[in-house]
């Protein structure tokens, strides 16, 4: 995976706990076009398993997951 992923929007979801990260991201996805990628930074440890589960069910794609200190940044592509 190359370092440069072009995203159309960035979300800071640090400090938010379950279920807010996926609620916010799913709301955001509604305004995107297929193929658009967003990135979301979260501090919720549950997100590590929750984001992939959410993506699988909602039919979106997690193109990259990057740890940033204690947080994790997800790159999500709308399909």
């Amino acid at each position: 995976m190359n370092d440069e992923i072009k995203t159309v929007k960035s979300f800071d979801l640090t400090g938010l706990s379950c279920p807010m990260p996926i609620v916010k991201v799913s709301k955001a996805m509604k305004e995107l076009n297929p193929g658009d990628i967003i990135d979301a930074l979260t501090s919720d440890p549950g997100a590590l398993t929750d984001f992939p589960a959410w993506a699988k069910t909602s039919g979106n794609d997690i193109v990259d997951t990057r740890p940033e200190g204690e947080n994790t940044r997800f790159f999500i592509k709308k399909s």
Partner: peptide, 11 residues
């Protein structure tokens, strides 16, 4: 309510 709102996020 966490399950309910999470479920909406899941579509």
């Amino acid at each position: 309510f966490i399950i309910a709102t999470g479920a909406v996020a899941m579509g």
